[in-house]
Design a protein around this nucleic acid. Structure first.
Lengths: 196, 196
DNA sequence: ATACAATTCAAGCGAGCGCTTGATTTATTT
DNA sequence: AAATAAATCAAGCGCTCGCTTGAATTGTAT
């Protein structure tokens, strides 16, 4: 990592790019748009990034890093499995809807624009996140708190949670904690709840 | 509707376009690609469609038409509400994963590329679909088979179902009926089931 | 102050884009 | 068979795209 690879200006570019990628999509966001957003000439971008796709990779890596950070929370074994799932869910949703987290939305919607090589790298990180969820869901299954295929449950719960990017409004009356609890009640019925 | 607006050739173009839009995304699919897929010169496309966006609108209208068709099934009032939801879910998933239904996937992923005018039209159709689901969910709530906010439940269940486009494999061992039942058990716990 | 490196600019290249146009081929009607 | 209409082609226009390049500017160390 030399100065260019991790400069404030580069981060500025990544943030502006993420915002644009989210708003209009990667293919329609031009390097001229991105440059304009930070007050640069379009050519100057290539002093910081080799190609436009490198910007997308950088954005998605940052997004995945945040998802991983949300999933990698130390959990006391004594905690009730349902509570562990709740923690995962709350942290996941919090990360997803925090201010200026356009990188996360981009991760969820722009994977098609990645070259196969870059895609493999992002998928590997996604698999790490899913492994954490699988571990907690396994505990819930062992405790007979859920039934059915764990993989499908994981896909359903993450599908429902990630879909919230499409509709959740931070300014609305539903807090993220409430959303998490509602989703949790859906997937792990209240009747299975126990004091933690 | 004159000959051009509803010709076999036009449908051929729409189908090929839907396939490409799904595979590489609307902005990256060029009219030259689409033309090539049906064995035409790129300019000839504009004999059938005024603009490239008109092709997308046509694809998405067809997709929404299919979603609506799946939702608009006559239901006997005597049928148990849970069974009604199951019917909706199965038909929705069937439609989503039937062969060559790229239009559906495009509806779910390319709404950002629509002009505001076209978007409003598609959203109106989506609202119709959601209204059907709301009606059934309302019945389930009245029968105390579910609790919590109906809107959130609908978003969660459709989110989870639509997310399956990303991972469901027709050639896999999981049938669509099984998937529907698994999802149904998640959202409307088995303990609430009653003979219909 | 001077030398050097880091950063940005101004200009534009080559390619690919959506789309147009006038001519040409193919099908249909009389 | 001739006349008309429908469908397609071949060529390319004007524009925007990602990206390059050589020069200019700004910052930093001596």
């Amino acid at each position: 990592m030399n100065t260019v690879d991790d400069s404030a200006r580069r981060r500025e570019l990544r943030t502006a790019a993420a915002r644009l990628f989210r708003k209009v999509g990667y293919p329609q966001a031009t390097v001229r748009d991105i440059a304009k957003a930070v007050g640069m000439q379009s050519g100057s971008i290539f002093y910081y990034f080799k190609t436009k796709e490198d910007i997308l990779v950088d954005v998605m890596n940052e997004g995945m890093r945040q998802f991983l950070e949300a999933a990698r929370v130390p959990m006391d074994d004594a905690v009730h499995p349902r509570m562990k799932l709740r923690t995962l869910l709350v942290r996941h949703l919090m990360t997803l809807h925090q201010r200026n987290n356009d990188e996360l939305a981009v991760v969820l919607s722009e994977w098609r624009s990645l070259s196969p090589r870059a895609r493999r790298q992002i998928v590997a990180q996604r698999d790490e996140v899913e492994a954490v969820w699988n571990r907690v869901l396994r505990e819930l299954a062992d405790a007979r708190l859920i039934s059915g295929d764990i993989a499908i449950l994981r896909l359903a719960i993450l599908g429902a949670a990630n879909w919230s990017v499409q509709w959740y409004d931070k300014k609305g009356k539903l807090s993220i904690d409430e959303l998490a609890d509602q989703l949790l009640d859906l997937f792990v019925p209240i009747s299975a709840r126990t004091a933690s």
